[in-house]
Nucleic acid binder design. Sequence first.
DNA 1: TTGTACGCGTTATCAC
DNA 2: GTGATAACGCGTACAA
Lengths: 323, 323
Amino acid sequence: MATIKDVAKHAGVSVASVSRYMNKNGYVKKETGEKIEQAIRDLNYVPNEVARSLFQKKSKLVGVLLPDITNPYFPLLAKGIEEELNRQGFMMLLANTSDSEENLQNYLTTFIQNNVSGVITTLPVSHVPKNIKMIGVDRAYEGDFIKILADDYQGGKLIGQEILQTTYRNVLIVTSNLLMPSVNLRYQGLVDVLDKHAITHTTLQSQSFNVDRTDETVASIFKNYSAYDTIVASNDYLALKIMQYAHEHGMNIPDDIQVVGYDGIPYAEMFYPSLATVKQPIYQIGQEAAKRMSKLLNNNKDELPKTTILPVTFQKGKSLRYF
Amino acid sequence: MATIKDVAKHAGVSVASVSRYMNKNGYVKKETGEKIEQAIRDLNYVPNEVARSLFQKKSKLVGVLLPDITNPYFPLLAKGIEEELNRQGFMMLLANTSDSEENLQNYLTTFIQNNVSGVITTLPVSHVPKNIKMIGVDRAYEGDFIKILADDYQGGKLIGQEILQTTYRNVLIVTSNLLMPSVNLRYQGLVDVLDKHAITHTTLQSQSFNVDRTDETVASIFKNYSAYDTIVASNDYLALKIMQYAHEHGMNIPDDIQVVGYDGIPYAEMFYPSLATVKQPIYQIGQEAAKRMSKLLNNNKDELPKTTILPVTFQKGKSLRYF
DNA sequence: TTGTACGCGTTATCAC
DNA sequence: GTGATAACGCGTACAA
């Protein structure tokens, strides 16, 4: 690997001139520039980001914290982040915490050790050094940083309004941790609509979003809540698992049980019957988060609001019994 | 952020001693060690990986090249890689090339600029500096480096043998680029079985694995190949899309059309009807690749064979018409 | 307009 | 056992 010194020697100038030329700051005579240009090509020189990062105390690296990459919601988010980051000249360091707080902390220090300039997180994090720019997404409701969120309360409402148009009898709401604001808002939106129309409902709070534990949740639903004919799942993956279980046990969807999901992952509409769900602008959230991050890092003072809320829509599906 | 100098000063020793203590090489008296330990805790010092990387000309970073993170095959692979890498003290830099050769090259230089010690690639790459350790996976058949692959030829054969047990009439093989060895091997395995039993078949070579273009492929299948009742899809995502299309157009699976996929993504068995497919040990491939990488990087001379081939299995499904 | 010299935080060499 | 000190590759005062 050629270094800046090699280039300088090859071009017969000093390293300072090469550096100035490359970063387009300071003066450099035209013909000197051309000599440098030539040398760079000859040696196909690429600046060493590590040295740069060491000196500048910041890098082109942006860390991304996800709870579970196996849940199809997150790859799509990651893609949105990655493509936009890439466009802006940054690189994504991806960390998958597997829903473990310990992993999260470890990754965070690894991020710091590697001099990331920013972190986009889907999870609540505490104790972030303030030279690191943070942007929160999805579940990262807490913390004093910019957030790009979907309209969770509205999402819950949409589900409620949709259920009103179906031949519901007993409504079971399967939710994850209600202490998480995003989860809670969806729940509130839904419950507000149901209560307003005096629809009784039962709530089952399952432990975790984690894909590996979904099977337990599903089994417990069918074992302990067999009287329910309408299931509101906390996410599409769970909803699809419920539908699979129902199929395997000879139940018909939506005739015996109707199901509605949340997220709008690509598989929702591919299923048979297609899954009714709330479509979150997943890719856009990622993209928007990355855009804001690059603004932050370029010190373009960001006049935009601290919290951006993107709209959600209801995606109709054959998993509901409309009358 | 506290530096090694701060620690040294705080402990009343020299930076050299702190470094020796941290890396557990060279001598350091017990009580000196304790003073250092204390200082580290007081300042909660974490060594700066960037400086370390600059000096050592290598880092704890491993780059991973994927063609398309939206295809559920890859997140699972990435998870296998990431969890194992993490266990070994490395960090994953994830790059999603979106099937573009230009992106691939850019990412590769970014990897180099950031001093990655190794690259795990799912794609054929050329011109890799030889101080970077490479491991190939999935489509990375070419290149002189260690490879962890699934038994593609066997996978093709399994499909052929399975079709023999069904009431097939006209077999359409939808394949992607046959110039890719993995694709070609699968194709050969399948065709060898079909030919041996004198089963006629037609081949449709579609342009790309890319998820975004799948819809075009599906439309073209139903438009131009409507006479076929047995479709062998090049991957599960395509297979599921075909099933979706069939459902939406009033066809029954497997009565009107039987479909078989390839990969064994988690959604295959969740679908209704469940998708018959060849199950690749996706997570294990990632895990194995990461293990080999960490061996390589720790200079444990790797006695293992250059190419490891992991077995595949057939996963039965209701998308086939068994007689 | 250009070059010299220093510092970023770490490790390794060598002298004490 | 320990402590100076020279690298690693880059950017930038400051001097020329």
